[in-house]
Design a protein around this nucleic acid. Structure first.
Lengths: 216, 216
DNA sequence: TGTACATCAGTGAACGCGCGTTCACTGATGTAC
DNA sequence: TGTACATCAGTGAACGCGCGTTCACTGATGTAC
């Protein structure tokens, strides 16, 4: 009885180890594909990124991708989630140690990040504007928006806001999103000049919010 | 000499009339195509609107469209310009008779209009996000943004703002754009509820701006 | 007034391309006995 | 230890669709003489 239990146990552990190893391998292969996708996103507008090129980048055949991702949208959604992890972390750091200029700092962080990784921003907007998306996909794509809103909540709360915190976060997020969308193809302006302009416009709003909260 | 002049004159007038008539006909046919396009935009997401369906709607063959528009993008850009004329007018009316609630009124007008004619908003965003567009096309598509910014300038000036007027308009426009983009596929919320939420968020910003300008 | 010619709107069908996804198959590795 | 069988990652090629745009042509109308 005991022996059989031990054997069973060993057996199960072994199986467990094997399947875990397999899982790990699978995870690694996914990783390779994701990295290839991210590389592609860095190279060209996201709506030109296609499965064939991702496959080529990863050194596999297009058909293989479908062993790891059900379809292109899921792949893109995951790339978006991964690609934007950092900005959420950074905003969290700013929000946690809330100081006089925190609102503007957060705005600058947002703008810096998404001006640098423009494709992710476009991908996000694209998911947002996409009409009826399936719920699961929508959740995945909206994860970043939700996360940023949470960080903004933290920020405004730490700055002493007590009422309508989520609403203020929404306003802040919308403003930043709008700034990224609106100032883009500024004819005759360089990338740097656009960046400066974006921050100036953001400064208007963050300034108003700063004093608004102080008066709150 | 005099006679020949008269004849020439008559002749020229006649030719002028003829070509004018031809121009008018041409203009009318363009009109028919444009209206067909607008009808299509009202029916489905703009990125599903295609030349074949527009042609069918207009009762002509797809090839014919190319007698009146060089390509699809121009057609879309013109549809956008036409479809958004009204909102510019409305905002102008609000800006002209600037009163206590004008900022919020303008925001509500913007949101009302684009929530109703969602396709035009998406089309606008699409043009904005499109990477390197040819300059002429860009101009056309951006006409509406410029016009609205001008109206906002008028509004803020009338409300007594003296510094950074264009910058404030930029911030206002970006916020409204962001609000439209961000609150869209709100899971479990009806179209009306989304509308209400959009206006609430806009209210946060317009409120801040109102007091901000008063203090200015 | 009639005739040859030019102009041009309009057309259905086809071209061409991009691209997500699937198919039918191969070959390596693991498993049962 | 060897053998038949199952599993499954991986693949090149093809499917299928959408869709902007062009082609080669027709037919009506206007023009010159």
């Amino acid at each position: 009885m005991i022996i059989s239990l031990i054997i069973k146990g060993t057996h199960m552990t072994k199986q467990g180890t094997f399947s875990r190893l397999k899982e790990q391998e699978k995870h690694l292969r996914r990783e390779i594909i994701m990295e290839a996708a991210e590389k592609q996103f860095a190279e060209k507008p996201f709506n030109r990124v296609n499965m064939r090129d991702i496959a080529k980048e990863a050194g596999i055949s297009p058909a293989s991708i479908y062993r790891y991702f059900p379809d292109q949208q899921s792949l893109f959604a995951e790339a978006l989630a991964r690609g934007t992890k950092q900005v959420i972390k950074n905003v969290n750091a700013i929000a946690s140690s809330a100081s006089a200029n925190s609102i503007d700092d957060a705005a600058v962080e947002f703008i810096d990040f998404f001006t640098g990784d423009d494709q992710y921003f476009r991908l996000m907007i694209n998911f947002m504007l996409e009409v009826p998306v399936e719920n699961e996909l929508y959740e995945k794509a909206n994860y970043i928006a939700k996360s940023l809103l949470d960080e903004f909540d933290l920020l405004f709360t730490n700055l002493g806001a007590t009422q309508n915190v989520r609403l203020i976060s929404h306003a802040f997020f919308a403003t930043l999103t709008g700034i990224m969308t609106t100032f883009r193809n500024y004819p005759g302006k360089s990338r740097d000049e656009i960046m400066v302009h974006r921050k100036r416009v953001a400064g208007i709003i963050s300034g108003l919010m700063q004093t608004g909260i102080r008066r709150d």
